[in-house]
Nucleic acid binder design. Structure first.
Lengths: 140, 140
DNA sequence: AGTCATTGATACAATTAGTACAATTTAGTA
DNA sequence: TACTAAATTGTACTAATTGTATCAATGACT
């Protein structure tokens, strides 16, 4: 059987904390359809072993994803990509949270030296990717 | 096992500040190939201990090298010689890292139920805000 | 003395690792 | 089937390691 587990690529010198890299890559794989709702993620221990990091580091990444309702961790069972999309939030909170998200993203990108043009183009691309992934899924 | 750490030679009477000597010698070792991109430097405390110097002095040297992008210091993890991949790789990595950031942001936003239009508009707004903040700062 | 650069002391923050524990599932066995 | 024990899985709390920030002490030079 083919190895299904999408392997994560860590850069131990990148400046980004390991747990952040794990969060980013899992989220990225979800957007790109490599991971789908309902999928089970590797256990904290097995992923940690694969990545040669402490399992608490993975647990921390999972907890962040869990708090963001992106995954659902269940003690004694495992962790899974969340089935149900968004929780209801008020319009105000929605706007605020989006602004905050955008601000964080833009700030980080600019800090890394990307131009405004690059940033907006990359968002466009990502949106397109996501739309395609969604269409594919709906056709199934 | 042979001691791998290249020891620095300080001259406490040379008139050159300790931190400058540390900066110079690390730079020199990099040029001479004794240190290579990705290498981990001793921690501020261990190097300070070796050199019989306060660790803040080492930290100051490291900060200077960090600002010069020669090394990358990471709180809680350590200090490393900056990786300087060939330009084409750099560009590829740059794109990838931005794509990852964008994916994460877009994924999160869409998951929260925002429309594509809202997302791109919010990025536009945020870019504008950052640009204004930057202009103000430059006028100072 | 006054001032500035350098170095040191101390407290802090971020990241990762260690250890013990709780919830759930699985396997064994009567 | 029903019960129990072990294995598997995530959680909580703590410790260790690392760099950061701030301010005080020192020393050289005017």
């Amino acid at each position: 059987m083919a190895e299904k587990k999408p392997t994560l690529q860590l850069d131990f010198h990148s400046g980004l904390p390991i747990y952040t890299q794990i969060v980013n890559q899992i989220q990225s794989q979800l957007v790109n359809g490599i991971l789908k709702p309902g999928d089970q993620l590797p256990t904290v221990r097995s992923l940690a072993s694969d990545l040669r990091v402490n399992f608490n580091t993975v647990a921390r990444a999972y907890r962040i994803l869990d708090e963001a309702r992106i995954i659902s961790t269940q003690q004694g069972r495992g962790t899974f990509i969340t089935e149900i999309p968004p929780p209801e939030v008020t319009e105000k909170l929605r706007k605020e949270s989006l602004a905050e998200l955008a601000d964080r993203f833009v700030g980080e990108a600019l800090r890394l030296g990307f131009s405004e043009r690059e940033v907006s183009q990359m968002v466009k691309d990502s949106l397109k990717l996501w739309k395609e992934a969604k269409n594919v899924k709906e056709e199934e």
